[in-house]
Design a protein around this nucleic acid. Structure first.
Lengths: 194, 194
DNA sequence: GCATTCACATACCGTGGGTATGTGAACGAC
DNA sequence: GTCGTTCACATACCCACGGTATGTGAATGC
C-alpha cells in the first residue's frame, strides 16, 4: 500500500523529469505528450491530471530550470562580500550555467514563445534577473558605478547574457568562449565605474 | 491574359503579406495555413507550391522583416560620417524600429525556435548584426574604443538590444523607454572609450 | 464496512500540417 | 493556328496529436 500523496508526488516528479529531457532534446513542438507519459509507464491522462495541458507541464519544467540557474547564480555571488565581486561572480556563473543545452532550449528559446514573453519575463525576474537587478542596485549604492535607472540596464545586461549563453554553446570551444564573453562583459561593466 | 510569371509573383507577394500579418498577430503556431491562403482568395495548395511548408513561408517572412530593419539601421548610420556617431545612430534606429510588435513577434520571439537558433543567427548576421559588427570594428580601427575581439562584444550588444526592444514595447510609454534604454546603452558604450 | 475521493486509464473528437493527384490556362515549337 | 507540354494552382485525402469526457479501482475517512 503506497499512500496516494506519495504516488502522486512520484508520478509528478517523473513527468517533470521525462518532460525536461524531451523538451530539451526535441523542442516543445516536437514533443508529444503521450510519449512523455509512456516513457515513464503512465498514460496521457496522468499528465493532464497533474498539469492540465502540455503547456502546463512545460511551464512547470521552465520554472524548475530557472530556479536551478537562479540558485546557482545566487550561490556564486554569495561567495563574495564586495558587491562588485558579487556582480561579476554572478554574471560568470550565469554564463557558465546558461550554456547548458537543456537550459537554453527550454528557458531561452522555447519558453518566451510558448508561455508568451510577458509571463516569461515575470518568471525570469523571479529568478535570475532579480539577482542581477539587486546586484546592480548594490554597486550603485556602494558608489562603485554611477546612479542610474536600474531597469533598463538590467534588461540590457540580461539580454546580453542570454544571447551570449546561446552563442557560447554554439562555439567549438565553449570553455574558451565563456572567458571571451566574460572579458567583453567585464569591459562593459568596468566602463560604468565612476 | 495575365502572364504566368506576373501571376506567380502576385500570389507570392500576397501570401507573404497575409502571412506576415497573421504571424505577427497570432504567433506562428496559432496561424493556420489554410486561413492565410483563404485570406487572399487562394487555397493551401498555392502556399505549398510557393513555399513548400508552413515553416518555409515563415522563413521568407522573417527574411523580409530582418532585411527591412537592417536597411533602416544602415540608412540611419550612413547619415553620419564619424564611426562613433554611426554606431550610436544605428543602435537608436534599431531600438526604435525593433519595438515594432510585428518585428518582435516574428523575428525576435518565434523565429529562433521555429527556424532553430543557428539558422536564425545566420539570418540575423546577414542583416542587422553584420552592421553592428562592422560599426564596432570601425570605432576600434579609429581608436575610439580599445581593440578587442569583435564577435563576443557584438553578440552581447545584439542580445542586449533585442531584449531591450522587447522590454520597450511592453512599457506604458515606449517612446520614453527608447530614450531610457538608449541612455543606458550609451553609458555602456561610452565606458568602452579609451 | 460503506460511501467518497482521487489518481489515474480508456475512448473519442476536432484540428491542422502535409501529400498525392487532378485541371485548366499559359507557353513554346512547328 | 494547333498541339503537346509546362506550370500554377485546386481538390481530396491521410493521420498525427492536443484536448476532453467518462470510466475504474484502489486509498481514505467516517
Amino acid at each position: 500500500m503506497t499512500t496516494r500523496a506519495a504516488q502522486r508526488a512520484e508520478t509528478r516528479r517523473a513527468l517533470l523529469d521525462e518532460g525536461r529531457r524531451r523538451f530539451a532534446r526535441d523542442g516543445y513542438h516536437a514533443v508529444v505528450l503521450e510519449e512523455v507519459a509512456r516513457g515513464i509507464g503512465v498514460t496521457k491522462g496522468a499528465a493532464y491530471h497533474h498539469f492540465g495541458s502540455k503547456a502546463g507541464l512545460f511551464r512547470a519544467v521552465v520554472a524548475e530550470a530557472q530556479d536551478r540557474i537562479g540558485a546557482g547564480v545566487a550561490a556564486a555571488a554569495e561567495a563574495h562580500d564586495d558587491p562588485w565581486d558579487q556582480l561579476v561572480a554572478g554574471c560568470r556563473a550565469f554564463l557558465a550555467a546558461g550554456s547548458d543545452p537543456e537550459f537554453q532550449r527550454i528557458v531561452l528559446l522555447d519558453a518566451p514563445t510558448v508561455l508568451g514573453w510577458n509571463e516569461w519575463r515575470e518568471m525570469d525576474e523571479a529568478s535570475s534577473a532579480a539577482h542581477l537587478g539587486e546586484a546592480l542596485s548594490a554597486v550603485m549604492a556602494a558608489g562603485t558605478i554611477a546612479r542610474q535607472p536600474v531597469e533598463p540596464l538590467t534588461r540590457l545586461l540580461s539580454g546580453a547574457m542570454n544571447e551570449a549563453a546561446l552563442w557560447i554553446a554554439g562555439t567549438p570551444d565553449p570553455a574558451a568562449s565563456v572567458n571571451a564573453a566574460m572579458e567583453a562583459l567585464t569591459r562593459l561593466l568596468d566602463g560604468l565605474r565612476s
